[in-house]
Nucleic acid binder design. Structure first.
Length: 432
DNA sequence: TCTGGGGTCCTAGGACCC
DNA sequence: TCTGGGGTCCTAGGACCC
């Protein structure tokens, strides 16, 4: 048995904790560069603002709706997430943190009234952290996800489901006929693992609701679609096919990519950007105790600028030996971007990916490795400690440039809120 | 003017081997 | 007329997730 604890409209809810004036208003949080909506309050959803809708189009189509847009403040969301996860973990013996706002809880050893207990945890998260959550319970992860959808939708849209399923919904406690009614009332596109493409194919085959999908024969699904969809069908039928990942497995690749605030034409700016992305990626790499074998650097123009000639290129640079050394990784990334660069284009985005990651403790040593390597890993550890303590960017490689935040390639974030919980200067003050 | 970032898994097809 | 069988590894691309 699993529970899925999921923060409602998470980024918006984080902002509202520190700005109560945003309650009851249409609020959206924008992607980097203030590009498109990546979180929406219920009021914003009610206005018809779609996930991923470009901000400039929203402004044009809803000039008088009073929509409040905020630049993404991932530092704040990350910290709020940690706090929420710590409380959610109290629901059961095991927790799998699935995303910034969702965690699965293993309930298999739990006795007693799971729904009452879930309501308590939900209330605690709301009171202590200020984030409203929905909790779904089911015998498989896919059913727990579906239950979570029901819990949130019943709360948001009265009449969509029985009210007693609002906020906390335990699908495994429903009698079969009620469960079928819930399945029948839910569009198959809501199922975890059924996306736009497969959803359209299923509908073309005459299916519409979750109930239609639950009644499919898994073997037929495997033949006609894929083993992936077969697993989803089995999970909906109550057969667990997905493991519970108590400890997060190490990442197999690590990326740092950004769109630019404005078009970039000069190689030296691209080198500066890619150096910074490579440094950041190397930091993440060391944090999970891995080393990279290859570094990929890419640059491309904006497909949205139809008037521009388009160009896109990525170069993969092998490293001499697996490493997590910022200097070597930056060097490889710069080599890649130099090889990829062609003058005369308006570049809109660049990025660095670290590939073929392996555990740093498994080393293919070489003769005459020397003291230098040991010194460098100590240097990297010191670099990480300094940046951890004094803030990202406190100590950087010279090739990342004298970033004053006003360079052409930096992103736009014109509506960013303070880092309320992680910077002393930003801590809100309560007036007596 | 203005359209995000970071991942995972699966499959098909090509190259290559004996 | 008739052109094997079985396997691995790699890569690109598609689909999904938040």
């Amino acid at each position: 048995m699993y529970a899925l604890v999921d923060g409602n409209n998470f980024y918006v809810s984080c902002e509202r904790v520190f700005r109560p004036s945003l309650l009851d208003r249409p609020v959206i949080v924008l992607s980097n560069n203030d590009g498109c909506a990546i979180a929406r309050s219920n009021e914003a959803k009610a206005l018809g603002i779609a996930m991923g809708a470009p901000w400039h189009l929203i402004q044009r189509s809803l000039p008088d709706a009073g929509v409040v847009a905020l630049s993404a403040n991932f530092t704040l969301y990350g910290d709020m997430s940690n706090r929420m996860m710590a409380i959610a973990a109290g629901l059961g013996p095991g927790q799998e943190i699935y995303s910034i706002d969702e965690s699965f809880i293993d309930l298999s050893a739990m006795r007693g009234d799971l729904v009452a207990r879930s309501h308590q945890v939900r209330e605690r998260i709301l009171q202590w952290i200020g984030i409203p959550c929905g909790i779904g319970i089911g015998s498989t992860k896919t059913l727990a996800k579906l239950a979570n959808h029901v819990a949130k939708t019943a709360d948001r849209k009265p009449g969509s489901y029985p009210m007693e399923l609002a906020r906390v919904c335990n699908l495994s406690a429903l009698p079969p006929s009620d469960l079928d009614a819930v399945f029948a009332a839910t569009d198959l596109g809501e199922v975890w693992g059924i996306g736009r493409r497969i959803g359209a194919q299923l509908k073309e085959a005459g299916l519409t609701s979750v109930l239609d999908v639950v009644r499919l024969d898994p073997a037929m699904v495997r033949g006609r679609w894929s083993v992936v969809l077969e697993r989803t069908v089995r999970e909906l039928q109550g057969q667990s096919c997905m493991g519970f990942e108590d400890v997060a497995p190490a990442k197999k690749e690590i990326a740092c990519t950004r769109s630019f605030g404005q078009p970039v034409t000069q190689l030296k700016d691209l080198i500066e950007a890619v150096s910074q992305f490579a440094s950041r990626a190397a930091e993440k790499l060391r944090k999970q105790g891995s080393q990279a074998v290859q570094v990929l650097a890419f640059i491309h123009t904006s497909p949205f600028r139809r008037q521009d000639r388009q160009y896109s290129r990525s170069i993969t640079v092998p490293l001499r030996r697996p490493t997590a050394d910022t200097a070597l990784i930056v060097q490889a990334a710069v080599m890649g971007v130099k090889a990829a660069f062609k003058p005369g284009f308006n570049y809109s985005k660049a990025g660095v990916m670290l590939l073929d990651l392996q555990d740093a403790s498994v080393q293919q040593a070489e003769l005459a490795l020397g003291d230098e390597a040991a010194d460098r890993s100590a240097l990297m550890a010191t670099l990480d400690r300094l940046n951890d303590r004094y803030g990202r960017g406190a100590v950087v490689l010279a090739s990342t440039g004298q970033s004053d935040g006003r360079r052409g390639w930096h992103m736009k974030q014109s509506m960013k809120t303070p880092e309320y919980t992680t910077r002393w200067a930003d801590v809100p003050r309560a007036l007596a």
